[in-house]
Structure formats: C-alpha cells, structure tokens
C-alpha cells in the first residue's frame, strides 16, 4: 500500500496544527479529521498518472531571475512600517518572552 493511503488520525491533526502554529480546539480537530481525510483520499487519484519522465512545473514559461544593481533605493519609512504593529514601544516591536529564564 502506498504512502498516500495513510489517513490522518486525531493525533496527527493536532501535530500538524502545532507545526503550523494553529491553535485548534478539540471540537475543531474532531470536525476537521474526516474532512481532511476525504480531501487527501481525493488527491490519491494523481497516482494513476504516469509521470516517469515528466519534470515538475516549478517555473512558468519565461520565468527568469530579475536582478538590478545593488544600489540603495528609498524604501518604506519606519513610521509607515510600524503603523500596523499591534504592540510596539518607540522604534521597537514588542513580543512576549522568547527565551525561558535560565
């Protein structure tokens, strides 16, 4: 049986939610579980397609790196940038504690 036919269980749902920093209630996780599994099972039909020598389409036609000279240009003002920060002190962005006390 291929890798793609492992349905999720409630533990995996909570695990994924933590990985993507989404706080889920138990009710939400329980409601999502069958929905997520149904969608993943739908994706399994791609396994039918022979893609042996087919490259992935990471780039669309004409895509290329667009570079310019490394000369400083005016950017956004600090005031403008800070205007939407929910918590700030002067020029600093406030965040809760990052490190535990030693």
């Amino acid at each position: 049986m291929s890798d793609t036919h492992h349905p999720l269980n409630i533990e995996t749902v909570h695990h994924i939610a933590n990985l993507v920093q989404l706080g889920l209630t138990d009710e939400e996780a329980a409601a999502f579980l069958p929905q997520l599994n149904a969608i993943l099972e739908y994706f399994a039909l791609l396994q039918e397609v022979d893609t042996e020598s087919v490259p992935p389409a990471f780039l669309l036609p004409g895509a290329r790196n667009v570079l310019r000279e490394d000369n400083p240009e005016p950017g956004m003002s600090r005031e403008a940038f800070l205007s939407n920060i929910p918590a700030s002190e002067g020029e600093y962005v406030s965040v809760p504690r990052v490190l535990e006390e030693a």
Binding site: L8, V13, I16, A17, L19, V20, Q21, L22, G23, L24, T25, E28, A31, F32, Q35, L36, I39, L40, F43
Partner: peptide, 19 residues
C-alpha cells in the same frame, strides 16, 4: 492564528503543510 483564521483557512494551511 487560532482565533483570527476561519475554518476553511485552517484546513488549507494544515493540508498544505502535510503534503
């Protein structure tokens, strides 16, 4: 993110990370 995002957004983010 738990409070600010609706259900559909959460589903999609989770499936995206999983795949």
């Amino acid at each position: 993110r738990g409070k600010g995002f609706g259900a559909e957004v959460k589903r999609r983010i989770m499936l995206g990370a999983y795949t």
